[in-house]
């Protein structure tokens, strides 16, 4: 499988996935609607890894579920467009979207144990995708499944095919999930915090594996994470989300070298550093997302911001930038930190 030539269907440089003004609103009758994603736009080009970074509740997972068409239809409104290979995913029918999922776009989830069906053997779970999208019989798909498991670094893959999820370690389970997601060679992989439930050494292995696979197959990847360390190791481009809006965008090097939005700076400052003096306390961002102001008439981050001005609570900061670098802030941090 790895010997197959990579044939990018889209010319390099043209976006494979173009998300424009994505808005997701939760709300049931009689309740105040809540806007979880508020006008998010970003591009993913073939072979590129794009990070969506932010703390819990900033809308990064909802963004990915909306693109995949996996949000419950009841009580949710999804607006905007997500053009994948010339087709708006958000306007496809449920049936058409099912045919895309797993074949063209796949997803890896956070918790590898609960994301596997506990009563079905690993082999069947991997072959199920191939049976569904490639029309293979289980017998034909089994050797391919073993190959896939081997490729994602599972030792003794033939024996593992007959195992149940609870018999594998956490890292092995995540590898199995990656194998399932890659079974039909999707062109876009959405990884929703794929290393959060794993311990640090396994995290490093899984990230290295994802990196290898992305390079090897030319798959584009959207990496959703709250961990800037993951971003630093993997992503070509980073989008920082806050309160459902992208507040800063940059290339990996640009963003880490010169973070401009106070929130990005706060995220970077709250990472424990090995070279920091002993006993020095971490500097967390004060407050929580519960303090957010509505974006309609202010900057949502203003109440927690160390750099806030009067204008920050009076007007919505506009997006200044393009699809590679950009910022949404009235008073960005100085050029060098």
């Amino acid at each position: 499988m790895s010997t197959q030539p990579i044939q990018p269907a889209v010319r390099h440089g043209e976006p494979l996935l173009a998300v424009r003004d994505l808005r997701v609103t939760f709300g049931r009758r009689g309740e105040e609607p809540f806007r979880a994603v508020d006008g998010v736009s970003f591009d993913v080009r073939p072979g590129q890894t794009v990070g969506l970074v932010g703390e819990s509740g900033c809308g990064k997972s909802v963004t990915s579920l909306a693109i995949m068409g996996l949000l419950p239809t009841r009580g949710n409104t999804v607006e905007g467009t997500a053009v994948f290979d010339g087709e708006d995913l958000l306007s496809l029918s449920a049936q058409q979207m099912r045919d895309r999922r797993g074949a063209d776009i796949a997803m890896i989830f956070q918790d590898p144990l609960s994301s596997l069906n506990p009563v079905i053997q690993i082999g069947r779970q991997v072959t199920e995708v191939m049976e569904r999208h490639q029309g293979l019989s289980r017998k034909e798909a089994m050797p391919k499944a073993a190959e896939l498991l081997e490729r994602v670094g599972i030792p003794d893959p033939r024996a593992r095919l007959a195992n149940y999820p609870h018999q594998l370690s956490g890292g092995m389970r995540q590898r199995a999930l990656i194998a399932m997601a890659l079974a039909c060679q999707p062109r876009l992989l959405i990884a929703d915090e794929p290393t959060t439930a794993l311990d640090v050494t396994i995290q490093a292995q899984i990230l290295a594996l994802l990196k290898d696979l992305v390079v090897e197959t030319g798959t584009a990847m959207v990496m959703i994470t709250h961990d800037l360390g993951v971003v630093a190791g993997l992503c070509d481009e980073v989008n920082v989300l806050y309160g459902g809006k992208i507040v800063e965008r940059g290339t990996r090097h640009g963003l880490f070298a010169r973070p401009r939005h106070p929130y990005t700076v706060g995220l970077l400052d709250s990472i424990p550093r090995l070279d920091a003096p002993r006993g020095e306390a971490l500097s967390p961002i004060p407050g929580s997302v519960a303090d957010n102001l509505p974006w309609d008439s202010a900057c949502a981050f203003a109440p927690r911001c160390s750099n806030a001005l009067d204008v920050c609570v009076e007007k919505t900061p506009a997006w200044e930038g393009d699809d590679v670098v950009g910022l949404r802030c009235f008073n960005p941090m100085g050029v060098s930190r």
């Binding site: 996996l70 074949a103 997803m107 956070q110 994301s115 069906n117 199920e128 569904r132």
Partner: peptide, 26 residues
Amino acid sequence: ASDHVLAARSLGVKPHAIVFRHMLPN
């Protein structure tokens, strides 16, 4: 509402297989 059903849906598994293979046995 479980993760593994969401994961199965994310792979495009058909609704009847979701119900009879992924939901009912569990």
